[in-house]
Simulated scan of single mutants.
Amino acid sequence: MNIEIENLTVMLEDILKILKQHSDLKSSSITFQEFVNYWFEAYAKIAVKQSTQKRYRELLIPAIKAIGTKPLSDIKPLDIQKIYMNLTGKLSDSTILKLHRLLHEIFKHAVMWEYISDNPVKKVLPPSPEKKVFDVWDVETAKRFLEVIRNETIYYPVLIALHTGMRAGEIVSLKWYDVNFEARIISVVKSVRNNRGLKTSDVKTKTSKRSVYINDVLFSELKNLYETIKPKPDDFVCPRLPTGNLTVGYLSKRFKLLVKRYNFPVIRFHDLRHTFATLMLSLGVNTKIVAEILGHSDIKLTADTYSHVLPTMQESAMKEFSKLWK
């Protein structure tokens, strides 16, 4: 506990030092480049992983080049829009959209910290990338696959993915102290930091940190596994490989191999998460509930991702509603 307090104290001292360094910089004179540097020190360095910070810096290169020397308070929506226009055809729409979201976040902090009064990115229209197409299995296909891979090393990861919608990194990082049989809850709090699977870290957002209910099928399977191997609380739930490790990369490659070997419809390991969500929504489960289980930061993300399922849900709901009038 003392170590945690010391770490927190050091972190707060660093923040205060950064704030002091910028306290003499007037809002009217700070440039976009200067504010971005400040934002990385005061926020990004603390809130996101180093790998994410690196991606942010790469995304921001076109914006820094275009408006880096411009005073923050002088930047208008048209300045941002011109950046997107210049990038059209050079970068994918999805990449430009990522830049848009990052700029929105940066300028949002500029408003919060009272450097500017309004966020210009709010008035800019980003491109609308084509929706990602993904394939899913129906429940019978998923059941058959679990039957044929019963003795495979990836059996439990596949089982957990299909019954919780958890991400591969979250499944690989799951430990027995995260599984509460009495409350029938899995606490999703960790994910792998790198593909070697040797290090884990907290899941990336507040909404990613969540509790997922253990249904009857999964409860029975996990309980049997627990009673068979009698693990320590700090042991991983999914059995490790003979090498002592289990990685996201291994799950992906082994899953792909087994799908091909047993002639199943081709999907990726990550599509098991989509399969779970699609099955839940097709049962009429509220989109907000599905979003919470998946750890989505916004219900809109869930609705957009699974928009192909929603019309069927509406049709079923309307049929049930019409029965009330007969």
Rank of each mutant, 00 (worst) to 15 (best):
G284F: 13
H308L: 07
F236I: 07
K232V: 07
G244Y: 10
Y306N: 05
P265N: 05
F264H: 13
L279T: 14
C238N: 03
F236K: 03
F255W: 03
N245E: 11
I267T: 10
L241Q: 08
F276L: 11
D304F: 05
K256E: 06
S297A: 15
N245W: 10
S307R: 09
V290D: 00
V248R: 00
L283F: 08
V309K: 10
V309L: 12
L310E: 00
T305K: 11
N263Q: 15
H296I: 06
H296V: 01
R261M: 12
T247I: 13
V290H: 04
H274M: 02
Y250N: 02
V285A: 10
N286P: 04
T243K: 05
R254I: 12
L301S: 14
S252D: 09
G249M: 06
T278F: 10
T278S: 15
S282M: 15
L272Q: 09
S282G: 10
T305C: 04
R254S: 13
T287W: 03
G244R: 03
F255Q: 06
F264E: 06
F269C: 09
L281Y: 02
E227L: 15
E292G: 01
K260W: 10
G295M: 04
D235A: 14
G249L: 09
P233C: 12
K300V: 14
T302S: 09
I229E: 12
V237H: 01
S252I: 01
V237I: 05
N263D: 15
R268Y: 04
P231E: 13
I293H: 09
K288A: 13
S297R: 00
V237N: 01
S252L: 04
H270W: 04
Y250T: 05
H274V: 01
P242Y: 01
